[in-house]
Design a protein around this nucleic acid. Structure first.
Lengths: 222, 222
DNA sequence: ACTGAAACATGACATTTGTCATGTTGCCGT
DNA sequence: ACGGCAACATGACAAATGTCATGTTTCAGT
């Protein structure tokens, strides 16, 4: 519970009150934290593991909006909408732990602590910029560039240095990648095959290695 | 200055203090309110006209992120980032009027008025949902569906009822549309020609008419 | 009313991406 | 260790979109 900015900025009575409103919940592979369309009830904070935010179409196609990692907030937006529905589905990638708080307690916190409100505003601002950057990439770049950008980003943000390159910390299938960059699984596989041949990456879902981050970044913005 | 939620929720001394910090600025065709990469200095509110938010690539391609209309806030996000740079360019579509406030006054407002902070949180939450919905559309839909969705959305949000159909209030070239849905001008033109042939729309930039909103919506989500 | 520039239009072709089919590899649970 | 399912792989073809070229229409400013 140390690496959560929103909680760290609080102190004294504010902090105690907020902590007393938080409940821990755990989820595993196959669970859903909530579904697209369901009414929002809680404000959430990820403390361990990775949570995938997904939107789907009527005909079964899926699009992954964001991978939430420890420290990330969710439903700080939709929940603010009185009575709104979840705009997407939240799905754990393996074991995760989250803290949550009722909508009412969340509003109370925001009203009573300007620090908390400012922190949420900064967080949402960053998320908005991120989402718009993603939209730009989807609108203007080719599939291979989008995939290169994704791998580079994941390597930088959650990669582990290894002698051979940067190891990605989470399991990530070609289908997961496809959903994140807006292509089909087949194209993602083909592009990954090419990247492998060109020694940019190696390995599959359980052990993905980024072998040439610089070249990957260059390709992403070429 | 009546139709600005953020200002309407304030009253008394709070309202006076905030109003005293706001300065009006006007811009016309060809001006830029700010450029991508420049440091953020102000928080802005649109009061009249339309402002286009754009991101560009090194090789001159452009992507329109959002059309801001009266009541919209901007740089409530980037400005919250101390010393951050503008993630995009803000460009007036014709004559616009905006109110602005220094970053410092903006922070003071957010600290002193929980109502203002909550309003900004709600606004940012909506913008985030919007941006993610846009990303989903870019990731999963064909160009004609994306264009249909755009036209339907504009018709609903800023259209004027006319005997022949719904007239779009702003000037919008095929190139503008292309930049908003992530295609080339040529494809946007071809798709619009088809829509015209099928009696879904008519007219060009200065006088665009949506003639069959329902069919347009159906195409968007088919 | 005229004129130059911007917007619109369309054809021909290249490239990218999707679709469907089929086969191989890797990994998890018993 | 092995059986089965998910993940990975690849070919052949279709569809969508981009690119380049060329011509017409529309519109704002003189």
């Amino acid at each position: 519970m140390d690496r959560i900015p929103l909680l760290n900025i609080l102190s004294g009575a504010d902090r105690e009150r907020v902590l007393s409103e938080l409940t821990e919940a755990r989820y595993g592979k196959g669970d859903l934290i909530f579904r697209e369309g369901e009414p929002t009830e809680y404000f959430h904070i990820v403390t361990e593991g990775t949570v995938k935010c997904v939107k789907s179409t009527a005909d079964g196609k899926e699009c992954t909006l964001k991978m939430l990692m420890p420290g990330d907030l969710f439903c700080c937006d939709a929940a603010a909408f009185d009575g709104g529905a979840h705009p997407g589905t939240a799905q754990p990638m393996g074991d995760v732990r989250i803290l949550r708080m009722s909508k009412k307690a969340y509003f109370t916190m925001l009203r009573q602590s300007p620090d908390a409100a400012l922190e949420v505003i900064k967080y949402l601002g960053n998320r908005l910029n991120e989402a718009q950057e993603k939209a730009k990439i989807l609108a203007l770049d080719r599939a291979d560039q989008r995939l290169a950008a994704l791998l580079a980003d994941l390597a930088v943000r959650s990669g582990i240095e290894e002698p051979q390159g940067i190891r990605l910390s989470m399991r990530l299938t070609r289908q997961d990648m496809a959903n994140m960059v807006g292509t089909t699984t087949e194209t993602a596989i083909r592009i990954m095959s090419r990247f492998k041949r060109d020694r940019l990456v190696s390995g599959t879902a359980n052990r993905l290695l980024v072998r040439d981050l610089d070249r990957l970044k260059k390709l992403a913005s070429a």
